[in-house]
């Protein structure tokens, strides 16, 4: 359903070298190239390469994915605040969900996202991984158990 070579080409650059857009009026930064500011609607946007590191603000682990992602389940989608102020949602990799904490530093990494059928394109995109090695012994309370107690 998503096997579309021209569409992948058009979007490839933003997928592997993400940019962010800064509104000169609102002084707020948004992920991706924007032609209108998501806040004020003005076209006062300056586009530059996005920061390649940031912190985890929140996350969820998907157990019931779309068919294209079935082989990867479960996987984590995080809300990440980049150092340039832009917020994005993206996969977090190389870490178990139980090891994630708010404020954890993460860095961008190019990874395979999806393979378009047997003979199609391999689509790459930007995912995020912890900047430092996560050691299991010093495990912080897991997201799931905190959510259960409602105190998180």
């Amino acid at each position: 359903m998503r096997d579309n070579v021209p569409d992948s080409w058009r979007r490839q650059s933003d997928h592997v070298i993400p940019v962010s857009s800064h509104c000169r009026h609102c002084r707020e930064t948004f992920i991706h190239e924007r032609h209108a500011c998501p806040r004020c609607g003005r076209g006062t946007m300056t586009v530059k390469p996005a920061s390649t590191a940031g912190v985890v603000e929140s996350w969820t682990e998907i157990f019931d994915p779309p068919e294209e992602f079935h082989r990867m389940r479960p996987y984590i989608i995080g809300l990440i605040r980049l150092d340039d102020g832009a917020r994005l949602s993206a996969p977090i990799v190389d870490v178990e969900s139980g090891m994630l904490v708010k404020g954890m530093r993460v860095e961008a990494v190019v990874r395979k996202v999806y393979v378009q059928g047997q003979d199609g394109l391999i689509e790459y995109g930007t995912k995020y991984r912890p900047s430092m090695k996560v050691i299991k012994e010093s495990k912080p309370p897991s997201g799931a158990s905190l959510a259960k107690s409602g105190k998180q």
Binding site: R11, H15, T60, I62, P66, F69, V113, Y114
Partner: peptide
Amino acid sequence: FQGQTLASDYALMARQYMETYGVT
């Protein structure tokens, strides 16, 4: 493109809501 789902969006909202308002 990244495999996000309707459920994962509502899950992120739920997590934020539960943290903010002490909902279980």
